[in-house]
Design a protein around this nucleic acid. Sequence first.
DNA 1: GGGCGAAGGACCC
DNA 2: TTCCAGGGTCCTTCGTAT
Length: 443
Amino acid sequence: MALNDNKAGMGNLDKERINKVIYEMSKGSKYYENEQRKEEQVKAKIAAQHKQIQSFDAREIEKSELQADAMLAAIEEMRDFSRTIVHIDMDAFYAAVEMRDNPSLKNIPMAVGGSAMLSTSNYEARRFGVRAAMPGFIAKKLCPDLVIVPTNFDKYRQVSKDVKEILLQYDPNMCPMSLDEAYLDITQHLAERKNFDAEQKTFRTADGEQRMFGIAPNMMLAKVCSDFNKPNGQYLIPFNRQAVMDFVKDLPVRKVCGIGRVSCSMLGAMGVVTCSDLFRKRGLLLKLYSAISFNYFLRVSAGVGSTSVQRGDDRKSMSTERTFAEINRPAELFAKCYELCEALVEDLKKENLKGKTITLKIKTIKYIVRTKAHSLLNATQDVQLLYSTARDLLRTEIRLCSPEPLRLRLMGKSRGEQKLPFGAVKPKTDGRHTLLNYFKSPK
DNA sequence: GGGCGAAGGACCC
DNA sequence: TTCCAGGGTCCTTCGTAT
């Protein structure tokens, strides 16, 4: 458990002191114990991986390398420099909006969120080690003068919408990833721009927010680039193979979107730290990982990513969850359950959606998370039906741990597969498996 | 032996 | 004082019905 400094503005700080404070605030807590439990799980996974590695002989690995090389040749075929992809990231977005609306916050350390959790912080606060996904009470310890502004999502949504209006002028198929992030394919725009006059060429900015641009031949690289030269920076990878390979060569795998804490540890344990290490260890990786993961690793090692910016507009699920002070009496648990059903139904109705698979999520006071799901015959947005389903799932959980009470700190509801109107057969035709299994070695 | 639902995770913001 | 969120997506594994 330490500070995650994989973030802009966190370059030169007293990490030792910060980590000490975080540790002092955390140790002994239920949360901390659960984190340790999770760390043990990762260690166990690494040990299992190690054992597997030792069971391979050199000839097998060589064979895998050849196979990987064939796959890499196919990936090389897909390399495409014809599109100009931009990834835009609004810097410390929520904080920037709050500072815009209240300039007195500008030069003091401030964060957006609550005492339980911060969403983001400004650069003043980052100097103290205060960052997103840090609980407010620890942030306060690190920086006693920190001002915490409560989140106001409606406001951020509005600003985000305004910004998107502007971005749409550059790419009508622009793909927003969240309130503060988007991918654009500006190839067409660049072609048209050649005929623009000076006035048309000025980039219209929304008031005050800083933003990062990553410009590259594909989405994966553009995303990494937008994280360079923060704040308010811009980074471009030249559009040729050598430049891409140079860029990727020493790039830590952790910087790549999709490779997180756990994968990074697992890879690190076998000597893979940079993207070129992914290539170096391709023989081993092919044997250890699934076809999907391995294919992804290879593409990363070659700096090849998707060039098609398009939004998959239909949402797959909708959920709502709440954290609270412990509740354990069945009557209260059921009441909370009903409350959440109501909240979910309200959200469903707003978007005129229905749910087919109802999932109950619970988190015990020891931070153990469990989910229980039940699929209905037909999609619904009826509170009573939703509740009776969720209630049965909850009842089972209560029985399961009796005679001990079920002691919870969080409960959530979600629904999925709403797209299919009343029990239609879902057309799940992704040729994914067949294609990838073609590459995967026969066991 | 492919499909599918359920459960659990990893990751991202 | 407060004592680690909430909203998503995608992938893997497992059991069992077909």
